[in-house]
Computed example of a mutant assay.
Amino acid sequence: MSLPSIRRPAVLLVSSGLREARERRKIGLRHLAYRLRMSPARLSGLELGKRIAHPSDVSHILGFLGISGVEYEKFMESAKHVYDDNLVATDDMRSFSLMWTYEQMSDRIVEWSPFCLPDLLRLPQHFDREPGTDEEPACPELGPLERTVRREAVLDGSRHYLFLIGEDALRSAGNEPDADAQIRSLRSVASLHHVTVRIVPTTANNPSPAHAFTLFEDRRTPMAVAFKNVHCTAYLTDRALLDRYSGTAKSLQRQALRNAAAADTLADFTWGRAL
């Protein structure tokens, strides 16, 4: 069995953008390929990210689609990075496009969230402010539409989700007035056959990264990793970095399994037992 190919983030941005732009204009792939004097197979490969769209290819296609101005500039900026293994996305729509594309290509997604519940598991009111304060949340959040789309993907059962939640995140959520509703929600999601929720204990010498990350896998082989802060999301496909984050995810899961075995001995661990 061959290993899944790694798709660089800028390649996916360009390919999915070209396909969306063509479909938005209601132009068939074969018709556009004919006008471009390009084989349909080659154009399809460019739109699926199986072929790298060079900047000259992108400019040529955009011209026939009548794309100009800001949209054109964004396309061409992405096209400059099609050979880069990593990409920092500062535009919310570009970031969500990448997140969604990698998610659809994956058969398993691992989310590590050390200090707050993952976006996909939090109640809507948790997005209003940082728990226990009047401040904006420290955890970057998805927009309402993007969050809804991803939540529906979690529920449809097309892929497996492994949520690794830091003990500190769970305790913080447990101190909220709506803690009972939150634990019922967590329990409901964790009961799905394709969703696993694990609690990772806090230790003084924990080697795990402090930042949250999302690991996208196909046949248990890492394809990409994303980690967010308030202003941007970094998407990494460098093989050494993928191996590092994959190893980290496995280490976190081992810690969580050991923690589950010892849960009865942990003080104040009602939430961990409830899951």
Rank of each mutant, 00 (worst) to 15 (best):
S106C: 03
G272M: 05
M99Y: 14
V82K: 03
S208A: 15
E111R: 03
G157Q: 01
R42Y: 13
A10W: 01
A256R: 03
D92K: 08
R219K: 10
R187L: 12
L275W: 01
A267N: 08
T214L: 08
D180I: 08
R220N: 14
H231E: 10
R147H: 09
D134L: 08
R151S: 11
S15A: 07
L192V: 06
V200D: 02
T203E: 13
A261H: 09
H81R: 15
Y83R: 13
R187G: 11
D238A: 13
S95D: 10
G143S: 05
V88G: 02
G132I: 01
H193K: 13
P137G: 01
E47N: 00
L215A: 02
R37L: 03
D238N: 12
L48W: 06
C139V: 12
T196W: 14
R258I: 11
K228D: 12
H31N: 12
T101N: 08
S191K: 15
L170K: 07
F269L: 11
V11P: 03
V58A: 02
A249W: 02
L275P: 00
D180L: 11
L145S: 15
G63M: 11
M99D: 10
V82W: 04
R184L: 11
A21G: 04
Q104N: 15
L142K: 06
K26N: 11
T196K: 14
Q253K: 12
A79E: 04
H81I: 09
Y245N: 07
S44Y: 09
P137H: 05
F269S: 15
P55L: 02
R19M: 04
R198N: 14
R7L: 12
E217F: 03
L142P: 07
M76W: 02
T203K: 10
T221C: 12
